[in-house]
Amino acid sequence: MTLSRIGFAIGRDGLIPRGIAKVHPRWGRPFKVPFSPVLPIVSALACLYLMTNLSVETWLRFLAWLLLGALIYVGYGRRKNRLARRESEEHRDDNVEPAAAG
């Protein structure tokens, strides 16, 4: 979806053919898929065919990189999670008793 929006913006700006910036008349989204639904189905089947012909070593490497990427993603997300930080600050504020009036 992001790539289609980028193509739409670049086409609208005239950096690539303006036909790329056309939107679907009914849904207002860029990029109608040609020969839909045949082309997407054939493309998915072609990808599956290529994937079934990969070696076991390739799949193991893929899984290793996938796990590494997931660990980095989760680790980064836990440290940089704004919602959790905000909730912990609210919890800290709830535990602070107001100063006694003098």
Results as ranks from 00 to 15, higher is better:
30 P>M: 08
32 K>I: 06
34 P>T: 14
4 S>F: 09
36 S>A: 15
18 R>Y: 01
10 I>G: 00
25 P>C: 07
38 V>K: 14
22 K>M: 03
23 V>S: 00
27 W>A: 06
24 H>M: 08
16 I>N: 08
12 R>T: 03
28 G>V: 06
31 F>W: 13
35 F>D: 14
6 I>W: 04
18 R>C: 01
16 I>Q: 04
12 R>Q: 03
25 P>L: 07
36 S>I: 06
27 W>D: 14
8 F>T: 01
7 G>S: 10
35 F>P: 01
29 R>L: 13
6 I>M: 12
26 R>T: 10
32 K>F: 02
14 G>V: 01
27 W>T: 15
24 H>V: 12
36 S>K: 09
20 I>F: 11
37 P>E: 10
26 R>M: 05
21 A>P: 00
17 P>D: 15
19 G>S: 13
24 H>G: 04
16 I>R: 08
26 R>N: 05
27 W>F: 12
34 P>N: 11
18 R>D: 07
5 R>H: 12
4 S>Y: 06
27 W>E: 14
29 R>N: 08
29 R>V: 11
8 F>Q: 07
37 P>H: 14
14 G>N: 05
19 G>C: 10
8 F>A: 01
37 P>K: 14
27 W>R: 04
11 G>S: 10
25 P>N: 11
25 P>K: 07
26 R>L: 12
20 I>D: 00
15 L>K: 03
18 R>E: 05
6 I>E: 11
29 R>W: 06
35 F>R: 15
13 D>W: 05
24 H>K: 08
38 V>P: 06
21 A>L: 02
22 K>Y: 03
27 W>S: 13
38 V>H: 14
15 L>Y: 07
9 A>Q: 05
16 I>V: 11
17 P>E: 14
37 P>L: 13
